[in-house]
């Protein structure tokens, strides 16, 4: 050994120098890095009070409390993604939206906007920042899918656009829908206005005691048979109306007396109602997806899930664990 070192002293010196540099390099690159740990051959996520919580334990714990919601996210992503081919219009829109989102995040989170975007995308099943446009295209596909579902089930869902006016109880419900003297006077004033030939929006503006809609001529928006957020008696009466019809007084034990007007019951008239009620600029093309947006966000919260489920079944759904399938169906209310 010593004769080798004597013979190759220069090479030996190089080896020693290299070894020293290597040791320093390893030390330096690991300095400040979070070190991992394994227990029973598995990666540990964290430890407390002498217990090592492994990735499997951590997964089980999270899956127990939030697993079905995570399954739902993945299901939505998978169905939306495969529901249709992306059109050029969708791609252009997604690209423009992505640029706008990035610009917004850049100004709000200048140093880590990519991380913030990536985190949001990971929470809904996408890999990260690079998936932003894919997510936006899937979002458009999903809206289109729901719109197609609503079109297909249009009659069954009884989709319609309605307005209303309300005469409130004076001091809570007087009982059984019998108006007090003063309430009757206010009801009569409304009836007289209709008899005089005034338009529903005009009467609602003048007489409705619900300030949230009276200013807009009583416009509520687009509802359907699965709407869960409206008074039962109100919805039942609204669903019976034909386009252009106004209901008689509808008694609601929670609010008072309603007159309901049906503005539209066909895709064409719904589009026109959307244009009129949202002050859409003349010449702007309106899609049914836009027409259904308030229905989805405010009234029929089950419509999106039903559309996704129907498409999912068409594509084919297989679960390794049948219990997860049952949980998802229940979560989506599609049983």
């Amino acid at each position: 050994m010593s004769s080798f070192i004597k013979k190759n002293w220069f090479v030996s010196l190089l080896i020693v120098v290299f070894a020293v540099i290597s040791i320093y390099y390893i030390y330096d690159t690991n300095k400040g890095k979070l070190k991992g740990k394994t227990a029973n051959g598995e990666d540990v996520v964290y430890s407390i009070n002498g217990t090592d919580v492994t990735a499997s334990m951590y997964y089980d714990s999270m899956f127990k409390s939030s697993g079905t919601s995570a399954l739902m996210q993945e299901f939505m992503r998978a169905v939306s993604n495969q529901s249709m081919e992306a059109t050029e219009d969708m791609k252009t829109w997604a690209s423009q939206q992505a640029a706008s989102i990035i610009s917004n995040y850049q100004s709000n989170y200048p140093s880590n906007y990519k991380d913030v975007i990536a985190q949001s995308l990971r929470s809904i099943g996408y890999k990260g920042y690079e998936d932003l446009e894919t997510y936006l295209i899937d979002y458009r596909k999903q809206n289109e899918l729901i719109s197609q579902y609503a079109d297909k089930h249009f009659d069954e869902l009884k989709i319609r656009n309605i307005s209303y006016l309300l005469v409130k109880f004076e001091n809570g419900d007087s009982g059984e829908g019998t108006p007090t003297e003063d309430e009757q006077k206010r009801l009569d004033a409304v009836d007289a206005a209709f008899k005089a030939g005034k338009e529903f929006s005009e009467v609602a503006k003048e007489f409705s005691e619900d300030p949230s809609t009276s200013e807009k001529g009583g416009v509520l928006g687009t509802v359907d048979a699965n709407t869960t957020t409206l008074d039962k008696a109100f919805l039942e009466a609204a669903l019976k109306l034909k386009e252009g019809e106004t209901s008689d007084w509808v008694y609601s034990s929670s609010f008072g007396y309603f007159r309901i007007h049906c503005n539209a019951t066909t895709p064409e008239t719904l589009k026109q109602a959307y244009i009129d009620q949202n002050n859409v600029l003349e010449g702007t093309e309106v899609t049914m997806s836009e027409v259904y947006s308030s229905l989805l966000s405010s009234y029929d919260t089950t419509l999106a899930n039903k559309a996704l489920w129907e498409k999912g079944q068409e594509l084919g759904i297989t679960f390794t664990d049948e219990a997860n399938l049952e949980k998802l169906k229940k979560y989506m209310e599609v049983e």
């Binding site: 990735a55 999270m62 939030s66 697993g67 995570a70 985190q119 990971r122 929470s123 099943g125």
Partner: peptide, 9 residues
Amino acid sequence: LYNVLKANS
């Protein structure tokens, strides 16, 4: 699924 769960909760 693990990644979605981790990102959310």
